[in-house]
């Protein structure tokens, strides 16, 4: 029925929702720059290691602690590893961990937050569960998880993938609570608003109310959580490996490169600048993309 009315309208004026979103997104300068930088970083870490073919784990001991040069544009570390190769290789793991762990915690947090905020009966139980997770001491929990699952996962997926799954799971499972609390707070307020009451009163099923009316209105805190979440995940990964709970030491990650470099901050500033820049650029670009997306998805702003 509605389809026919749509067909009847002028074809040139017809624009899909996503088309609208896209054109609004494109007009957001920060978001476009952010996208280009982010895609550049993704390409660099995905293709970079094939172009810059030095092995990141080859220790050229004679050339250790070198500054920047043509042979080693980013210099070398205390064992003579090429820093450019290490940053490229490390980016693969850091971005993969950052994105997947952020997604996991976001999905989990939003899901629990919406359920708790919307359904009064679930609220008490879910929020007390959230309190429990907030209260759990993370480090001993990690030790337990690692003890129970490291060897199993290593045998199933090999040392690299096994530990990747474990770390993403750990970061995700220990960082969803803030998102859940924030989302719940917003949903509590939203659900008393007139348009939700209206939707309820005409008998819209809860599932549809949530997906059509609640979700679009809680996007901004979720976007902020997402950008902050990536940074947290990348940094958390580095503290995990610092505690001996992360990737084996021959898998460089941005967080660990930055941590190792910090000790030599006065002697070799380039050791901290490159990984630090990589992390900051990633987080900044994701933040601007998030800003643009939020604007693009908000019908009130889109109309302006």
């Amino acid at each position: 029925m509605t389809d026919t009315t749509n067909d009847a309208t002028d074809d040139r004026k017809y624009r899909s929702l996503w088309g609208d979103v896209w054109s609004q997104f494109r007009s957001h300068r920060g978001a476009m720059i952010g996208s280009f930088v982010f895609i550049f970083i993704l390409l660099a870490v995905a293709i970079g290691p094939y172009l810059w073919t030095l092995d990141p784990n080859y220790a050229d001991v004679r050339n250790r602690n070198q500054g920047m040069s043509w042979g080693h544009p980013f210099g070398t570390d205390q064992l003579g590893h090429d820093m450019l190769a290490q940053v490229l290789q490390g980016g693969r793991i850091s971005i993969a961990v950052g994105l997947t762990a952020m997604m996991l915690s976001l999905v989990l947090g939003t899901f629990i937050g919406v359920l708790a905020g919307y359904f009064k009966r679930l609220d008490g139980l879910l929020m007390r569960g959230t309190d429990l997770f907030l209260a759990l001491p993370i480090l001993p929990l990690l030790l337990v998880i690692i003890m129970l699952f490291r060897d199993t996962l290593r045998n199933m997926f090999g040392p690299e993938t096994g530990i990747f799954i474990l770390i993403v799971f750990i970061i995700g499972i220990t960082s969803w609570m803030q998102t859940a609390r924030i989302v719940r707070g917003d949903v509590l307020a939203l659900k008393e608003r007139e348009f939700i009451l209206a939707a309820n009163s005409i008998g819209t099923p809860s599932k549809r109310v949530i997906s059509r009316h609640i979700m679009p209105n809680i996007l901004s805190p979720i976007m902020v959580s997402a950008t902050l979440g990536i940074a947290t995940a990348i940094i958390t990964e580095s503290s995990l490996s610092f505690l001996g709970l992360g990737f084996p030491s021959d898998f460089p990650t941005w967080g660990r490169l930055l941590f190792d470099g910090t000790q030599r901050i006065a002697q070799a500033p380039s050791r901290v600048i490159w990984p630090g820049l990589a992390i900051s650029l990633t987080v900044l670009s994701v933040n601007f993309i998030g800003d643009g997306l939020r604007d693009a998805l908000d019908p009130r702003i889109r109309g302006r």
Binding site: N57, Y58, A59, L79, H81, G244, L245, P248
Partner: peptide, 25 residues
Amino acid sequence: QDFQALIKQWWSEIGVETELKNISG
């Protein structure tokens, strides 16, 4: 961990494959 990396590299030169693991003290 630095020692592990170096020794792994030397052993790879004599045809020994090494997987590294470090455990909190």
